[in-house]
């Protein structure tokens, strides 16, 4: 009986949390399309999310592109398909690795920071202060972050794609001995618009998920340092899981035959 009660409590808790998240997301979307929009805050968030994430995303995609070229070469060499290396690198980077790696990196860097910042504001009554100063906390805190996430991530991913492909080029040409012209030609030969577009759509969705989870966990963070710490962890974990799940769904949407 105790076991059943515990299962029931957990299930009800899950339902309540899901409902609260759905309402939070709905409210956020509603405020996204209704004025006023805090342009200064939006620009600041775009700089925070986009510009300051460039080094970490750049390094991640650079080395991923390099290792992808190396690994696919050693694998393809077993059945004399080395010439497909550049195509594999560019398709993997644009369709999957670019958006997913950038999403996970930004989730760790920005999702955690959003949850910590808003959680601290909640604990120190700054969110209540916004309300008493006739400022809607959703409009002031959540909307700029969510819009900035959706705008910044596609740009980050586009740059990450280029850097990743360049990483593959470096290894392919300078280590594996491919001809530079041939490598570049086969890089773009089989690349289609849909490959890049699907990656950018994924990036926009990931940006939305990262920001919503960061803001949600911060907004409903528990009291004290422990509450804020837990909110930070939950924001990163939930955003990462949602990125992987939505990645599959979007891939299915674009490429399922």
């Amino acid at each position: 009986m105790t076991f059943l009660a515990a299962v029931g409590r957990t299930f009800l808790g899950f339902l309540a949390a899901t409902g609260r998240l759905a309402m939070f997301t709905g409210t956020t979307l509603g405020h996204c399309v209704r004025p006023p929009l805090y342009w200064r805050l939006l620009m600041r968030q775009i700089v925070d999310i986009g510009y300051y994430s460039l080094p970490v995303v750049g390094l991640t995609t650079l080395f991923s592109g390099m290792v992808l070229a190396l690994q696919s070469y050693t694998g393809f060499a077993r059945f004399n398909a080395e010439s497909a290396v550049s195509t594999v690198v560019v398709l993997s980077m644009t369709r999957e690795l670019g958006p997913v790696l950038a999403g996970l990196m930004v989730a760790g860097r920005i999702g955690a920071s959003m949850a910590a910042e808003i959680g601290t504001m909640r604990v120190t009554e700054q969110v209540d202060a916004l309300t008493t100063l006739s400022t809607n906390p959703f409009k002031y805190l959540v909307v700029p972050r969510v819009l900035a996430g959706m705008i910044s991530l596609p740009f980050l991913v586009l740059i990450g794609d280029i850097i990743g492909v360049f990483g593959g080029y470096l290894v392919g040409v300078h280590k594996l001995g491919f001809n530079a012209g041939t490598y570049l030609k086969s890089t773009f030969e089989f690349l289609e618009t849909q490959d890049v577009v699907s990656g950018l759509v994924k990036a926009a969705v990931f940006g939305f998920l990262i920001a919503v989870m960061g803001c949600y966990h911060g907004y409903y963070s528990g009291r004290g340092a422990q509450g804020v710490g837990r909110a930070t962890t939950n924001a990163v974990v939930s955003a990462s899981i949602l990125i992987l799940i939505s990645n599959y769904l979007i891939t299915e949407l674009f490429f399922a035959r």
Partner: peptide
């Protein structure tokens, strides 16, 4: 409303 700890925006 004057909050107990001030609640100034950091």
């Amino acid at each position: 409303l004057l909050f107990q700890a001030g609640a100034l925006f950091d």
